[in-house]
Amino acid sequence: MRRLAPLALLLALPAAFYAGHWQSQRQLAVRLEQARVQAEQLQLRTVELEQLRRQLAVMESGEQLARQAGEQNRQTIKLLEEQVFQLQQELATYKEVLAPDSRREGLRIRAFQLQSTDDPRRFRFQILLSRVGPDERPLEGTLLVELRGRQGGRSRNLPLTTLAETVPAEGLPFAFRHFQAIPEGGQFAELVLPEGFEPLEVRLRARVKGQRLPLERSFRWAELQ
């Protein structure tokens, strides 16, 4: 029996070695299978991610085109509104000029058109002048515009020259026979109100060459918007 014990031990060593080797090979195979499955999942997720990126790019491109189209439509609508306003004013002026019962002759301050913008302190404006009477000589002169309102609890008057970059310090010049829009060509100028200024009234004063007394007209700010 004592002689057989070493022999049994020698025979058990190779068996243990092969058993351990088989176990490690099995674990390796399991890990390889897990790695293969994860690789397949990674590939699928990569494909899905690429598809989502392409879809997002298409959506963003579509939204950008939609925004551009919407902006173009808004600009077209704004241009049409300006053209309609210009035509309405011109038609009214022609009717007044040709009216047989019109007794007042000379310059008229017909309108001060005001439009708001996305900036609550920035506004677009246009002024329309006309004349009544058969005289064909051009009317020439200068138009001064002033905004009256309140700021800091006090009354304050601001000349348009301090609010609009396009208005010269000496005022807006005009020269016409029947009517004139300022600015011309259906365009609108811009003015920017100071912070905290509350406009209440727009006052216009026109001085015509050859006439001593100026023509004045006021428009309430609340009625212009």
Rank of each mutant, 00 (worst) to 15 (best):
R220L: 12
R110Q: 12
V208I: 00
A92I: 03
Q25P: 12
A189G: 13
L11H: 05
R212P: 14
E50G: 07
W221Y: 03
P120K: 00
E136R: 01
A66G: 01
L44M: 10
L44P: 13
R137Q: 12
N73W: 15
Q113K: 03
G70I: 12
G141V: 05
F219S: 02
F112K: 00
I109K: 04
G70T: 08
L56M: 13
H21Y: 10
L128A: 04
L28V: 14
T162L: 04
E165M: 07
A66V: 00
E165W: 04
R103D: 15
G106F: 03
A39C: 13
F123S: 03
H178V: 04
A39P: 15
G141Y: 09
Q51R: 06
Q187W: 08
L215V: 06
L160A: 02
A69F: 03
Q51I: 05
P168A: 04
W22M: 11
G141W: 11
E190P: 14
G185K: 02
L191P: 07
E195Y: 07
R205L: 09
L4F: 07
R207D: 15
D101F: 10
L129N: 09
R220E: 15
E140S: 08
R45H: 08
L143S: 02
L49F: 12
R177E: 14
R108V: 13
R122N: 14
G62S: 10
P159V: 03
Q41R: 09
M59W: 06
R131T: 09
Q43E: 08
P214V: 03
R131Q: 10
E146Q: 09
R124N: 12
M1K: 02
E81P: 14
L10P: 07
V202P: 02
V84T: 11
E71K: 06
A39R: 10
L42A: 10
R154L: 10
Q43N: 07
R154A: 11
R217C: 11
Q211H: 07
L193N: 00
A169Y: 06
V97E: 14
Q113T: 05
Q41L: 06
E184S: 05
